[in-house]
C-alpha cells in the first residue's frame, strides 16, 4: 500500500472507468427515453471494435467468409475510430428499427423488447463470426504512429507507468462526455430529447417528432457503444465476437449503480466500477469480473435508486 501503487491504480481505474462511463451512457440514453434496456448494446460495442479494426488495419485472419481478405484502403487510427463509431451509430438505428419500433407499434409487453434486442445481438455477433471467424484480433503496437508505449515515472523509487493508451482512453472519453453534455444541455435537439424523456406524449403534442428523436437517440447510443468498443479493443485486443457480452453486462451494473436514466450517475458509476476493479488487491485478481456485480447487488439492497437516482416512485 505505497503511494506509487495508489497512483498507478488510480490512473488505471480512471482510464478504464471513463470508457465504462461512455459505454454505459448508451444504455442510459435509451432507458431515459423508452424505459427499457437495450440488450443489443454489447453487440454494437463489439461491432464498433471490428469496424475500426477493418478500417485501420484492414487485414483479416484465416477463418470466416472474409478469410485473408485485405481492405483496399486503410485509414489512420483517429479517422478510423470516428468512421467506425458513426457506422456503429447507424447499427444502433437498425437495432431500433428491428427490435424496438415494431414492438412499440403493436403495443407488446415491454419485457419482449429484452428478448427481441437480444435476438438482434445474436444476429450481429454471429454475423461477425460468420464473416471474420472467432479468432483474436489485436491492433498492431504502432497503431498510434511514433508515440511511445508508455512513459515511466519514478515516485519514491517505485515506477509508475503512464501508458499512451490510457491517456487516449481517458482523453477520448472526456471529449465524448463533454460533447454529449453540451448537446443535451445546450442545443435545441438536446432540449427536445429531454422533453421526450420527460414525457413522450406531451412532447409529441408540442410538435416534437418523437419517433425521429428515438431514432436519433439510438444513433448516439450506438456511437457511444462503438467508440467504447474500439477503445477497449485497442487496449486489450478484440477477443472474438463474444467479447462484448461481459462488457455489456458490466455496463448494466454501471447504470444501476449510478441510477437508471441518470447521465451524471452513469459517469459516476463507470468511474466507481473502474476504480473498484483497479484497487482490487492483486491476490484477488481472479475475482475482478465479479466486482461490478457485487457492487450492483449491494447498491440495489442499500439504495435501489442508485447513487444519483431520484426517489423510486410507487405508482398507486
Amino acid at each position: 500500500m505505497d503511494f506509487a501503487w495508489l497512483l498507478q491504480s488510480l490512473l488505471n481505474g480512471l482510464s478504464i472507468g471513463s470508457v465504462y462511463a461512455v459505454f454505459a451512457l448508451g444504455y442510459t440514453l435509451v432507458f431515459s427515453i423508452l424505459g427499457i434496456i437495450n440488450f443489443a448494446h454489447g453487440a454494437v460495442f463489439t461491432l464498433g471494435a471490428y469496424l475500426t479494426y477493418a478500417l485501420a488495419v484492414g487485414h483479416f485472419g484465416i477463418n470466416g467468409l472474409l478469410a485473408d481478405v485485405t481492405m483496399p484502403v486503410t485509414l489512420p487510427f483517429v479517422p478510423a475510430l470516428i468512421v467506425g463509431a458513426i457506422l456503429s451509430g447507424l447499427a444502433g438505428m437498425a437495432v431500433e428499427r428491428l427490435a424496438f419500433k415494431p414492438l412499440r407499434k403493436r403495443g407488446a409487453d415491454p419485457l419482449l423488447a429484452l428478448v427481441s434486442s437480444l435476438g438482434v445481438a445474436l444476429i450481429v455477433v454471429n454475423l461477425i463470426q460468420y464473416l471474420v471467424g472467432a479468432e483474436i484480433y489485436s491492433f498492431p503496437a504502432d497503431i498510434f504512429g511514433d508515440l511511445p508505449m508508455a512513459v515511466i515515472f519514478k515516485i519514491g523509487g517505485k515506477p509508475v507507468a503512464v501508458r499512451t493508451i490510457q491517456i487516449i482512453l481517458f482523453g477520448a472519453s472526456l471529449v465524448m462526455l463533454a460533447g454529449l453534455g453540451w448537446f443535451i444541455g445546450r442545443t435545441r435537439g438536446g432540449k427536445a430529447l429531454r422533453a421526450t424523456a420527460e414525457n413522450a406524449d406531451t412532447a409529441s403534442l408540442l410538435g416534437i417528432s418523437v419517433n425521429r428523436f428515438i431514432l436519433g437517440t439510438f444513433f448516439i447510443s450506438g456511437l457511444l457503444g462503438g467508440l467504447s468498443g474500439t477503445l477497449i479493443g485497442v487496449s486489450f485486443g478484440v477477443a472474438g465476437p463474444y467479447f462484448g457480452v461481459s462488457y455489456g453486462l458490466k455496463g448494466l451494473a454501471v447504470i444501476v449503480l449510478g441510477g437508471l436514466g441518470s447521465i451524471p450517475g452513469a459517469v459516476l458509476g463507470g468511474l466507481v466500477i473502474g476504480l473498484g476493479e483497479a484497487f482490487l488487491p492483486s491476490d484477488m485478481s481472479s475475482y475482478k469480473e465479479a466486482v461490478a456485480f457485487v457492487l450492483l447487488f449491494a447498491i440495489l439492497l442499500i439504495r435501489p435508486q442508485g447513487l444519483l437516482g431520484g426517489r423510486l416512485e410507487q405508482k398507486v
Binding site: 428491428l98 427490435a99 415494431p102 414492438l103 403493436r106 407488446a108 419482449l112 423488447a113 428478448v115 427481441s116 437480444l118 435476438g119 438482434v120 445481438a121 445474436l122 444476429i123 454471429n126
Partner: peptide, 9 residues
Amino acid sequence: GVVLVAACV
C-alpha cells in the same frame, strides 16, 4: 436470432 426477433414482433 432472426426467428427470435420475428417471434417477438
